[in-house]
Amino acid sequence: MPKGFSLFLSTLAVVSALGFDSVRAAPAAPQENTGRNTRDQGGNTVTPEDQNESSADRNLAASIRKAVVKDKSLSVDAHNAKIIVRGGLVTLRGPVETPAEKTKLQTIAERTRGVKQVDNQLEPKSP
């Protein structure tokens, strides 16, 4: 009998003895933001697809993103927030961990040279 085969049979016996005769995949969980995405379908909200393609707006979005990612105190959600720039007007969207993160991202955007106004639509997960 090959060396690894006996280990496989032993493992199989333990799994069977514990009642794990068949492994089933967990049912797929609904996406966290599925309900939120329906609001974007009407065309009344700004989405990343509305990002202006001017070099000034792209550079402004990149500057904000760089400052956000540089701040290691922010959560992964905050680092991945949507930053949409159109004519110097910045829209922030997506989930963040806390209201403090929401405020911090707005402050970062407002302090970025060239930003005219910030529409903060970030959604804190906890109060």
Score class of each variant (00 low, 15 high):
Met1Glu: 03
Pro2Leu: 00
Gly4Met: 06
Gly4Ile: 09
Phe5His: 06
Phe5Tyr: 02
Ser6His: 04
Leu7Thr: 02
Leu7Val: 02
Leu7Pro: 00
Leu7Phe: 09
Phe8Gly: 01
Phe8Val: 06
Thr11Lys: 08
Leu12Gln: 05
Ser16Tyr: 07
Ser16Val: 03
Leu18Ser: 12
Leu18Cys: 11
Gly19Asn: 12
Phe20Ser: 08
Asp21Cys: 08
Val23Thr: 09
Ala26Ile: 00
Ala26Trp: 00
Ala29Ile: 03
Ala29Gly: 06
Pro30Leu: 06
Asn33Met: 06
Arg36Pro: 01
Arg39Tyr: 02
Arg39Pro: 00
Asp40Ile: 00
Asp40Leu: 04
Gln41Cys: 05
Gln41Val: 07
Gln41Ile: 09
Gly42Leu: 11
Asn44Met: 01
Asn44Trp: 00
Thr45Glu: 04
Val46Thr: 06
Pro48Ile: 02
Glu49Thr: 12
Asp50Gly: 02
Gln51Cys: 03
Gln51Asn: 02
Asn52Phe: 07
Asn52Gly: 09
Asn52Lys: 13
Glu53Asn: 14
Ser55Phe: 02
Arg58Ser: 06
Asn59Val: 05
Ala61Tyr: 11
Ala62Cys: 06
Ser63Phe: 05
Ser63Val: 00
Lys66Met: 08
Val68Ala: 13
Val69Gly: 10
Lys70His: 05
Lys70Ser: 13
Asp71Val: 01
Ser73Val: 07
Ser75Ile: 03
Ser75His: 05
Ser75Thr: 09
Asp77Tyr: 07
Asp77Glu: 14
Asp77Trp: 04
Ala78Lys: 08
His79Gln: 10
Asn80Ile: 11
Lys82Ala: 13
Ile83Pro: 09
Ile83Lys: 06
Ile84Cys: 09
Ile84Tyr: 12
Arg86Ala: 15
Arg86Val: 15
Gly87Pro: 15
Gly87Asn: 15
Leu89His: 15
Leu89Pro: 01
Leu89Gln: 15
Val90Thr: 11
Thr91Phe: 04
Thr91Asp: 11
Leu92Thr: 13
Leu92Val: 13
Leu92Asp: 10
Arg93Asp: 14
Arg93Met: 10
Gly94Asn: 12
Pro95Phe: 15
Pro95Ile: 11
Pro95His: 14
Val96Ser: 14
Glu97Leu: 15
Thr98Gln: 13
Thr98Ser: 12
Pro99Gly: 13
Lys102Ser: 14
Lys104Leu: 08
Lys104Ile: 03
Lys104Gln: 15
Thr107Ile: 08
Ala109Gly: 14
Glu110Met: 10
Arg113Ser: 12
Lys116Leu: 01
Lys116Ser: 00
Gln117Thr: 09
Asn120Pro: 00
Leu122Val: 04
Glu123Thr: 11
Pro124Asn: 08
Pro124His: 10
Pro124Trp: 14
Lys125Gln: 13
Lys125Trp: 13
Pro127Asn: 05
Pro127Trp: 06
